[in-house]
Design a protein around this nucleic acid. Structure first.
Lengths: 223, 223, 223, 223
DNA sequence: CATGAATGAGCGTTCATTCAT
DNA sequence: GATGAATGAACGCTCATTCAT
């Protein structure tokens, strides 16, 4: 991989020309919304809060978005698509299954360090919004599970991973493990084993979870 | 264990005498609230919905609970404590680490079949709500992680599980895997491999996830 | 006067027989209500607060009083009638006009020391309750003004007070002066000139206000 | 004084241009609130009543005021400050003590004729409300008493008023007398001696109360 | 584009009052 | 008499959304 997975995370707008280009203010609103949703939650966030955070009048929000809900939808759609793009790249990479799992773990576990607000919004606001029940969103999330499942199935077919475990189920377990690990970080409920610095801690966690999923907890496991 | 873990899940009230005993109506309200929260979400649920669901007058809710929020708090506290009690029993049981992991998986994965509303509320309204940031709740959830970590550490010390994997991290991964598996069920995002009947499907999922965590995905794994 | 005016103020129930007599509990409620109204105001006082203060169940309040409003009415009627009785005695006393004014001033100014709650309720809750607009209450208050006016008119006819000042107007001024003096005490807005002790302060205030109304502020006034 | 005291009372908005200027609607709300509070009392007034009286939508009230309470606070603060300004002008005027007392009496006694709603609100909702216990309000009212006391003390020092009477106490008595006289008017409890017309009645009352306070009720008083 | 005044539906909460026991 | 569970009307307040300028 030319780029590290973390570097491929959806990025906020780079400051560009002094004269705001079309769509720039729209993105400012989205980023402000991410910060406000992360801070106050979707229901606790007022449209006026988002506007103030974006430095605009709150009526202007309705020029760019139909309503508050559409802001959250847009955040999800655009960012999730970018995230899925990175996952697709991992799938397509010319590397071993173990390396792909490692890239996935790295992508997810480092996400909170790089985009804490975006992770909070995804985990706490989008996943539990009523809109989440809508088929389109469920399909979008399902794409992640199926992509990981394809990686696993490919590994089985290549003989790198043992057959006999349902790839769908294993993908759920793997993604769930990663999600809970970052959720624990966000809330401070759980602690990753501390290392000399954050980067080392993260690397250690990535190594450990991949080791766990490849080799298992059993006493007979070899490493 | 004389009882199966699933049978030990917090149980709703049994219908009893026509003359309501003290505290019974309070529990009716809690159960009605669980149903309404599961259906509409915390924010979408009106207090009047809860009252109607419980078959009581509007204001009576406020005899038993200070406000809407306290209802959700109480649901979490009472039910989660009961859930933790079962987990504690599993930890204390005289069985192998593998059997304990199997009991845990069974407890969690079967919970949605037995108490779908309670699981929905726990996962979507409590676990992922911003109110979850309150220290008391975080501590309560932390107890689950530490309990599972203790099970794993005891297994390592008994030589049943390999050393070298951080038990805290592994407990996060294990719980996260289970949670995502049921979340997927709730949302219909993911599908467990179908079997002849639901019970068989659940049993298959329990077996598979325990297998995965004990033996790993690696090709060299033996079973 | 055999009794001092202050001693004639409406008195709370004396503790009597151990076995509560009929009507005793009713009076407990009234006294509890005076305390609660004084503390929280009429609107801020809940019927349950009054019941708790009286040490009874709040449903019982409705055995003795039709509703919350009737409690305030009853307080006013009974206590005000007692107060007016004392004023009537002052009017009927065989003493000079100056002495009668002195008794009135003493009665009012000492009232707050003796029955601070009752004074607070009268000044802040009854005078501004909507019921106060009712003819019966207005007539009851009017009786005080007319009684004082009769005292003043009798003094004019006896040659003790100068003619030429409307007794009605002078009675308003005199009562208003006394009421503002105690209101100021209640609120701490105004300060009476401090003396060695409270009793001396009160006596000084009584002397001063009577001096003021008898001799005026003018430089030519003799004393 | 070029202007009569009564003319200096706080004035309501003049109807102006059809296009409402900034801040004008806020004043409409305050004036509507004064009318509604005068009619129904603070507790009896609904925010929707105020909005309807002001001819605006319900929620707009909350654009201009934080809550219902702030409306009453604002009424008091703005109007009372204006009132105090007039009292200060009376104090500063180059006139005798007797003339200043006459101006004060005139200011207060005529206020009810000119702004009956404002007087009702001040007397019944603010002056006698428990919210009045707040330090800031007490200080504001205290300023009136101290201002009048300064007028009296200056009169004593100029030899226009006799020494020996505490100015603070006398200011309480004077203000209290005036307040009770207008309160009596508001409630219809008391009647000022009727004259040919209202203006004559008021003038007579002003003359009488100043006469009373300057010369007293005593038979030896000269006028 | 941009502003923020204006709207009003909606909901949580309070609490006086009733009534079955 | 005594209790307190039960009722439900009433109201303050919020805030997403609209729209005139």
């Amino acid at each position: 991989m030319a780029r590290s997975p973390a570097a491929m995370l959806p990025t906020p707008l780079e400051p560009t020309a002094p004269r705001p280009a079309r769509g720039e203010k729209r993105d400012h609103i989205l980023e402000a919304a991410i910060r406000v949703f992360a801070r106050s939650g979707y229901h606790g966030a007022r449209v006026s809060d988002i506007a103030r955070e974006a430095g605009i009048a709150y009526g202007l929000v309705y020029h760019y978005f139909k309503n508050k809900d559409e802001i959250l939808q847009t955040i999800f759609e655009e960012r999730w698509a970018a995230f899925l793009g990175v996952v697709d790249e991992i799938e397509a990479a010319d590397s071993s299954s173990a390396e792909k799992l490692r890239s996935l773990a790295s992508l997810v576990l480092l996400a909170y360090r790089h985009r804490p607000d975006w992770v909070k919004v995804l985990v706490f606001e989008i996943q539990r919004s009523s809109r989440f029940a809508e088929p389109e969103q469920r399909r979008a999330v399902g794409r992640l599970f199926r992509c990981v499942a394809r990686i696993l199935r490919a590994g089985q077919e290549a003989g790198e991973l043992r057959a006999g475990l349902d790839p769908e189920l294993a993908s759920q377990a793997f993604i769930g493990a990663l999600e809970t690990m970052i959720t624990g970080q966000v809330l401070g409920v759980t602690q990753l084993p501390a290392e000399a610095d954050e980067a080392a801690t993260d690397r250690g966690a990535v190594d450990a979870v991949v080791d766990l999923f490849l080799n298992g907890l059993g006493a007979g496991a070899t490493r």
